[in-house]
């Protein structure tokens, strides 16, 4: 695997993860696109050095690129394409419902921790 490829994968994964941690779902979608590309590049790179296109009878077998990771990468691309669309649909629905596309907190969980804080305060008050 060439150094350029490693740097490209690291960059894509790094920026992807950075975007995924954002609150806005449209950024998250972009993050996934980058992360997905990083993963697919890693798959491609795992097949060893680049070679001729792996088509029968076009080049001697020794010079062909490894076709298996290419098949895996293709499958992964199709899946991530579909899921990106689904995420976009979710973001759109969230926009319809609330006017923004922010990933929100777990409300029930917030309620429980507020309860605990209130009890702690009351305990403090009693002392």
């Amino acid at each position: 695997m060439s150094l350029a490829l490693v740097i490209a994968i690291a960059g894509l994964v790094g920026f992807g993860v950075h975007l995924i941690t954002a609150r806005s779902l449209s950024r998250v979608v972009l993050g996934f696109a980058l992360l997905g590309h990083g993963a697919v590049l890693a798959l491609l790179g795992s097949g060893g050095p680049a070679g001729e296109p792996p088509l029968a009878d076009r080049a001697p077998v020794g010079e062909l690129a490894n076709p298996l990771p290419q098949a895996l990468a293709l499958t992964a691309i199709v899946i991530s394409f579909g899921l990106t669309l689904f995420l976009l649909a979710l973001a759109r629905r969230q926009h319809e419902l609330t006017g923004d596309d922010l990933v929100e907190d777990d409300l029930e969980d917030r309620a429980i921790s507020a309860l605990a804080e209130a009890e702690a305060l009351r305990g403090h008050h009693d002392d």
Binding site: G36, A42, L43, S46, L68, P69, L90, L107
Partner: peptide, 26 residues
């Protein structure tokens, strides 16, 4: 929609890690 987002995002992230893991194994 709200909770579905965290569910989808979390699982997609795990799937991406899975793919990278497959690449490392291969």
């Amino acid at each position: 929609v709200r909770s579905g987002m965290s569910y989808v995002v979390m699982n997609l992230f795990a799937s991406a890690l899975f793919l990278i893991g497959v690449a490392v194994v291969y």
